[in-house]
Structures are given as C-alpha cells and as structure tokens.
Amino acid sequence: MSERLDRLAKQKKQKRLILKLLFVLVLISAMLAVAAAYRAVTGKLSVMRMEVEESKEGVLEETLTGTAMVVQEETVLRSPADGRFENLVREKERVRRGAILGRLYTESGTESYDVTAPIAGVVLYQTDGLETVMVPSKLGDLHPQMFAYSIHVVRGVENLLHKGDAFAKIVNNLKPTGLVVKTEDTADPLADGQEVGVRYKNLDLGTARVISIERGNDYTLVGLIMSGFVMEVADRRSIPVELVIRRYEGIIVPTRALTTKAGRLGVYCLRKETVVFKEVQLVARKAGHSVVRGLDAGEYVVTTPDLVKEGMVMRR
C-alpha cells in the first residue's frame, strides 16, 4: 500500500514539474514572439520615417556679399552756355573722339553749339559729382570715407542747363572696370592677387583680381580690377555684389546624411533595398549641403542615418 502511495506522489510531482516546464517554454515563446513583433514594427516604422535623396554632381561656392563702388576713367562734359541739350547719340553708345553727341540750344533759340566727344568711349547722359573722386588710382588707396559720399545723379538731356553745368560724361571702355567692395566680413578669405568671381543681381560680371585690401574693426575694403570693361554697371556708382571666393565641384549630398561608423566618415546608401555604409571624404560644406568624394552621382543616400544600420533590408 505504501509503495502505491509513493508511486502516486512521484507521478504528481513529475506532472507539476512538466507543467512548470511547459509554462516556462510558453512564456519564453511568448517573449520571443513579442520581441520579433517589436522588431518588425520598429523596422516598418524606420522604413516609414526613413528619408532618401539622390546624390548629384554640382558646385558649392564660398562667397562674400557687400556693397561696391564702381570706379572708371570718366570725362565730364560741361555746358558751353545757358540752354538745353538735345542728344543725337543714344546713351551707352560707343563713340569716337570728335564725334558729335548733340546740340545745345540757347534759351532764345538763336544760337546752338555742337557738343563733341573729347575722348573715345561710352556716352552717359548723367553725372553724380564723383567722377573726379572715384578714379582708378583710388583702388590702391582704400578708405571707408569712399562709402560716405552722397550720390546725386543728374540727368543732362532736355534739362535747362547753365554755363559750366555737368550734363554728360564719357567712360573709357578701353580700360577695365574697377570696384571697391565693402563687406562686414572681417575674416581673412582674400589675398592680394587672388582671382574672384563677381555677381551683380544674379548677373555674372566675370572675374576680377584683388589688388588691395584694407581691414577695419568691423569691415573689410577690397580693391578689384575686372578682367575687362563691364558695360552692365557703367551707368552705376553703388551696387550690391557677391564675390565668389572659391568653388568646390563634386558630388553633393545633404549634410545631415553624413555620419560616422567606427571612426570613419561616410553615408548609408541603398543597394537593392539593402542598407550599406560607404566611406566618403568631405571636401566642403555650406547651407545644409556638402561636397564629398567617394560617391557616384545617382546613388540613393539615406538622410536619416540614425534610423538605419548596415545590412538592414528596407522593404516598403
């Protein structure tokens, strides 16, 4: 009888042990299932939140902005008598020395004077009083006072003139245009003799050479000689400009795509839905974009690198 009771007790104990083992196995299976589901959900969320952009060939520029005073060789024409001037030559037209520009008629109308060009150049029927101040020799003698002058443009055509009044000027178009640029950037990105690009209202004016630099506490003055005469600004004195200091050509990607892995700079790319890490070399960065080496144009770059890791399969 006692043997039978012992056997039953052992069977009950074994059943309880088996039930405990089954419970543990079920619990482990449930935990694994939850973990797998979590990975699947987070993976899908990562795919949904992941952003990708195609890399492209392009150029980033290092620029300076400022105000420029136009410096040219200008010869002022003055009225030979009281009267009104009527032009025969259009403004900005090139003329030879001695060409008749127009006639000055006295108020009585009984007399008229031929007005001829004292030199060859481009005709402008306006003056601003700075023709003898903004001369090419000033490009090597920079001073902030150059930007304190009051510019008062006077049109000479058909206005009543008094003897000696300035009413027109001839700009020597055989001499290159000069610019004195004032910028609030006090850094040191420029050097004498450096070639820079010049833009005015998104218009490319060409290249210029730095011939002088003057640095103050809160400004920098730069004297520039353009590569030639610039007709587009011949009738201007003060203009906003953008100087292109350096150009960086290469593959452009969003700067936020750059990341590091094991101390190496690179980006995550998509290759047939698989995330791969590609090491790159940074050339330059500006305004949220970077020029890099080590990528090809047309590669799909992940711009949210914190959401991915190498080897992930990104199925949408």
Rank of each mutant, 00 (worst) to 15 (best):
Q281R: 14
L104Y: 06
G298A: 07
D165C: 06
D114P: 02
V59I: 15
K10L: 14
L179Q: 09
R247Y: 13
S108V: 05
N173F: 02
L5C: 04
S55V: 09
I18N: 01
Y149V: 10
T127W: 02
E195M: 12
K20Q: 13
T42A: 04
A287W: 11
Y125R: 02
P305G: 03
S46A: 14
V292E: 02
T183G: 07
L104P: 04
P305C: 00
S79C: 12
V71W: 13
V241P: 10
V76N: 05
S150A: 13
L5I: 14
L64D: 12
R39H: 14
E73F: 00
Y38D: 08
V89H: 05
L161P: 08
L205A: 06
R256V: 15
F147Q: 07
S108N: 11
Y38N: 03
T177G: 11
A30H: 05
V280E: 03
Y248E: 10
A208W: 02
V41K: 01
G266S: 08
Y105M: 09
V313Q: 04
V230T: 13
N217H: 06
Q194C: 13
I100M: 05
E232A: 13
D188T: 08
N172K: 05
E107K: 04
C269I: 15
Y248M: 01
L22N: 07
S212T: 14
E184C: 02
K278D: 13
E195N: 09
R78M: 14
L32K: 05
M31R: 03
V171L: 01
Q11P: 00
K182E: 13
A68F: 01
L203S: 11
V153G: 07
L8N: 13
I225L: 15
T303K: 04
E51M: 11
V71D: 11
V24T: 10
P176H: 02
S238V: 11
L258V: 15
